[in-house]
Simulated assay, not measured.
Amino acid sequence: MIHITLPDGSLREYDQPLTVYEVAATISLGLANAAVAGRVDGVLVDCGFLIEGDARVSIVTPQEPDGLEILRRSCTLMLAMAVKQLHPNAQLRAGSSLGDGFFYEFAFQRSLTLAELPLIEARMRALAATNHSIRQETALQGTSTERLSLYRLGDFESFATGPHVPTTKVLQAFALDHIGGTSEQRIYGTCWSSQQELDTWRAPPQVMVVNIDERQSAYAHSVTQALRRRELRANSDLRNEKISHKIRQHSQKVPYLLVVGEKEKEGGFVSMRSGSGEDFGEKGIEAVCELLNPSKTGGA
């Protein structure tokens, strides 16, 4: 007999091993359909993970941060498959979730342009509509702390860090928005749990957080999330582009920019400037919120 303890403390008994998805289905069909992963004794696993002994189990959906990150991580696989179908000679490098979205890096025989992204996005939508399964085939431990597994999406295979969503049908609210680089190019996109969330993200922001290089990506994203919790319309640009390019691009259409480098990350603050070039200097997150949205911070 296998004993499964759920997050509310309730206990369920099963007479044989079962997957995370099957546990979800015994709770409700709606939960099973919404599941993108599970936690087994605190460890994130795929929905197909087989539970063979007593465990504490919770079901992960896109409505929580880990679930949303899994959606974005799975979009990288679907992007790679779409690109290989359209450009068979493209060489795969690596993909990852990144802030509000994801990216995948490729080496192409010729550089792609921004105008080609709609075709790639359309192919991704076709793959999502076909509702391919995403299955973990084998797992191996790399030299890093991340565990790589071989995942199969349709007839496409790639080594990636899991877990991933069980099927592509949950990958609906996504968009490709940028391509950077020359000989090796990164295609960037965003992904959300609903079209409404995607539309909200597309609305013009009050504040754009930009990082100097990839070392500050996690901190820049955490700043963005802190601003959103205080009801500011904030986005972040975490692309691997020169900071001067990002500032120049966003200054034309965003009222305020928050720049983060190593100094800002270590100190827990940002360097603030307006789109018109006014320099507000170094500021803590609370000070930024008080300046831009005083009604939510107790200011006048």
Results as ranks from 00 to 15, higher is better:
residue 2 I to N: 12
residue 2 I to A: 11
residue 5 T to R: 14
residue 9 G to W: 05
residue 10 S to P: 01
residue 11 L to Q: 14
residue 13 E to G: 07
residue 13 E to I: 07
residue 14 Y to M: 06
residue 15 D to G: 12
residue 16 Q to K: 14
residue 17 P to E: 14
residue 19 T to M: 07
residue 20 V to Y: 02
residue 21 Y to V: 09
residue 21 Y to T: 11
residue 24 A to T: 06
residue 26 T to Q: 13
residue 26 T to S: 15
residue 28 S to P: 08
residue 29 L to N: 07
residue 29 L to T: 15
residue 38 G to L: 08
residue 40 V to N: 06
residue 46 D to S: 14
residue 47 C to V: 08
residue 54 D to P: 12
residue 55 A to H: 07
residue 59 I to M: 03
residue 59 I to K: 02
residue 60 V to G: 02
residue 61 T to H: 00
residue 63 Q to A: 11
residue 63 Q to N: 07
residue 66 D to T: 08
residue 69 E to I: 09
residue 70 I to A: 02
residue 70 I to V: 10
residue 70 I to M: 06
residue 71 L to V: 09
residue 82 A to Q: 01
residue 84 K to A: 07
residue 85 Q to F: 03
residue 85 Q to M: 11
residue 88 P to L: 06
residue 89 N to F: 07
residue 91 Q to C: 07
residue 93 R to P: 00
residue 93 R to I: 15
residue 95 G to M: 03
residue 97 S to D: 13
residue 97 S to I: 00
residue 101 G to Q: 00
residue 104 Y to S: 03
residue 107 A to Y: 02
residue 109 Q to P: 01
residue 110 R to D: 07
residue 114 L to M: 06
residue 117 L to F: 01
residue 118 P to A: 04
residue 119 L to G: 01
residue 122 A to G: 09
residue 124 M to K: 00
residue 125 R to N: 11
residue 128 A to V: 02
residue 130 T to H: 10
residue 131 N to C: 08
residue 133 S to E: 14
residue 136 Q to M: 13
residue 137 E to G: 09
residue 139 A to C: 11
residue 141 Q to F: 12
residue 141 Q to W: 10
residue 142 G to L: 11
residue 144 S to C: 09
residue 147 R to W: 12
residue 149 S to P: 01
residue 155 D to Y: 03
residue 157 E to G: 07
residue 161 T to M: 05
residue 162 G to K: 00
residue 164 H to Y: 05
residue 165 V to S: 10
residue 165 V to E: 04
residue 167 T to W: 02
residue 175 A to Y: 03
residue 176 L to M: 03
residue 177 D to R: 08
residue 179 I to P: 04
residue 181 G to P: 01
residue 182 T to M: 10
residue 182 T to A: 11
residue 184 E to S: 13
residue 185 Q to H: 02
residue 186 R to I: 08
residue 187 I to H: 00
residue 188 Y to G: 04
residue 190 T to H: 07
residue 192 W to Y: 14
residue 195 Q to F: 13
residue 200 T to K: 11
residue 201 W to I: 03
residue 207 V to K: 05
residue 210 V to C: 14
residue 211 N to G: 15
residue 213 D to P: 03
residue 219 Y to H: 08
residue 219 Y to R: 12
residue 221 H to I: 10
residue 222 S to A: 15
residue 223 V to N: 10
residue 229 R to M: 12
residue 229 R to Y: 14
residue 232 L to V: 09
residue 235 N to V: 15
residue 236 S to D: 14
residue 238 L to S: 01
residue 239 R to V: 13
residue 245 H to T: 15
residue 247 I to K: 11
residue 247 I to Y: 02
residue 251 S to Q: 13
residue 252 Q to P: 07
residue 254 V to W: 07
residue 255 P to W: 09
residue 257 L to Q: 04
residue 261 G to M: 05
residue 263 K to H: 12
residue 263 K to A: 14
residue 264 E to P: 04
residue 273 R to Y: 09
residue 274 S to T: 12
residue 274 S to Q: 05
residue 278 E to K: 12
residue 278 E to V: 15
residue 278 E to F: 06
residue 280 F to T: 09
residue 280 F to H: 03
residue 286 E to F: 14
residue 287 A to C: 05
residue 290 E to W: 01
residue 292 L to I: 01
residue 292 L to S: 00
residue 296 K to C: 10
residue 298 G to H: 09
residue 299 G to Y: 03
residue 300 A to S: 10
